[in-house]
Amino acid sequence: MAGVLDSVNQRTQLVGQNRLELLLFRLVGQQIYGINVFKVKEVLQCPKLTMIPQRHPVVRGVAHIRGGTIPILDMGMATGQRAIDEDDIKNCFVIITEYNRKTQGFLVKGVERIVNLNWEAIHPPPKGAGKENYLTAVTQLDNHLVEIIDVEKILAEVAPSDDNISETVLDKVNNGALREKKILIVDDSTVARKQIQNCMNAVGLEAVTKNDGKQAYDYLRELAQTVDNVADVIALMISDVEMPEMDGYTLTTLCKNDPKLKDLYIMLHTSLSGVFNRAMVEKVGANDFMAKFSPDELAERVMEVIDARS
């Protein structure tokens, strides 16, 4: 256990060829869950929690860690499972993560180990699977099913943010430049896809959505058979980095190495805000990077790109 806890921070900079490292953990029960190490800042024995008034039931309290105050969410409760007993919290662990420019901790029953996998071994959750609404992917490990939770969905439910674009930004919309432009949105999180799609629709852009890099690449390859230049149809592609089947790095590399897709403008849009490796973005040839999720910032950046390329 100590080895797992000590190594998390050192391994968050994994840069792989369509690979990822998962930190495995358990909630109340025997099911194994996973979270990408790239999003983990620290794992520690649950510290003393301070109760806060009018808190969401999923928030078990706040912890004072390294000079900051961090909300601690019960991962089991957040996904519709039984909460960790109050008397047992002190024996549990907290996974400190950074998503969408915010830091929070997730209370879990136990932490197992770190495993290194290929994204091709990570699959979308099967239809009808239990807790499907809170899963982005599943994988098999040692004959056990590992479920990867849609953390962005949890955060959207516990602490919803304003996803509307401000009137100030909407006033800047150039309808002429945006007319007949399509945006390709690639993200395995249903919440993230909907957020970005609503943002694009609000400024008059048609959005095409795909659940992972493989789906997006297959779509682009099919489109390339019918048009001279895909970039004339797709104004830009907004892609997550972490996705089953094929991650955003690999998708970007394949597109930039394909003569019919190389002119496509690619923005990597990810919740890996605090530990994101910009050198990797440049290595794979992405045109831009933005941390999730600011609707005004995203809308303005997209409009700037389209204006510049029109």
Rank of each mutant, 00 (worst) to 15 (best):
G3C: 07
N9Q: 11
G16E: 05
L23Q: 02
R26W: 01
R26E: 02
L27I: 04
I32L: 07
V37H: 00
E42R: 10
V58W: 01
R60K: 13
G67M: 03
I70M: 05
P71D: 06
I72G: 03
I72M: 07
L73I: 14
G80R: 12
Q81E: 08
A83T: 11
K90C: 14
N91C: 08
V94D: 05
I95T: 09
N100F: 00
T103E: 15
G105P: 04
G105M: 06
L107F: 04
R113N: 14
R113S: 14
N118P: 09
W119S: 08
E120W: 06
K127M: 12
G130M: 04
N133T: 11
N133F: 10
Q140W: 10
D142E: 14
N143E: 10
H144C: 05
E147I: 01
I148T: 02
I149Y: 04
D150W: 09
V151Q: 07
A156L: 10
V158F: 01
P160H: 00
S161Q: 14
D163T: 12
E167M: 08
T168F: 10
G176N: 14
K182E: 12
I183N: 11
D188Y: 02
I196K: 00
N201R: 13
L205H: 07
K210M: 13
K214S: 13
T226I: 10
D240M: 05
D247P: 03
Y249H: 11
Y249P: 01
D263T: 11
D263Y: 00
M267Y: 01
S271W: 00
L272T: 06
S273E: 05
G274N: 07
V275W: 03
V281F: 02
K283C: 09
F289T: 06
M290C: 09
F293R: 07
V305L: 05
